[in-house]
């Protein structure tokens, strides 16, 4: 079966990862930083699935599944931290969370 080349998928995954990296560096709202991290995780998932499909490496799908699990765990803890941060500072801004620096 002729198909879309693997190179297209991996390049797309790299592009999504880079866009997520821009979000992580540039944004100051931790929720948006979180979503950018999720975007990067998704890009990695996409490349896992691509390799699993094109290199006949079926375990790639298992790794992607575990990665989704880790992302869910990360979101549960991270959002709790963000809500706790909002409670103590009354605003959500990573620049405001500099207590340990001072």
């Amino acid at each position: 079966m002729t198909d879309v080349p693997m190179f297209y998928y991996t390049t797309l995954a790299a592009l999504l990862f880079s866009i997520g990296a821009v979000g992580v560096i540039v944004k100051r709202n931790p929720i948006l930083i979180f979503m950018s991290i999720e975007l990067m995780l998704n890009a990695v998932n996409l490349s896992f699935i691509t390799y699993s499909r094109y290199l006949h490496f079926l375990e790639g799908q298992v790794y992607a599944f575990l990665l989704i699990t880790v992302a869910a765990a990360e979101v549960a803890v991270g959002l709790a931290i963000i809500v706790a941060l909002f409670r103590s500072k009354r605003e959500v801004d990573v620049d405001a969370a500099s207590l340990m620096k001072e």
Binding site: I31, A72, V75, A76, I82, L85, V92
Partner: peptide
């Protein structure tokens, strides 16, 4: 279904 809804709730609660 889960993560984005959770994020929407976090936005609701915090910003």
């Amino acid at each position: 279904g889960a993560i984005m809804v959770l994020i929407i709730f976090a936005i609701l609660l915090s910003t």
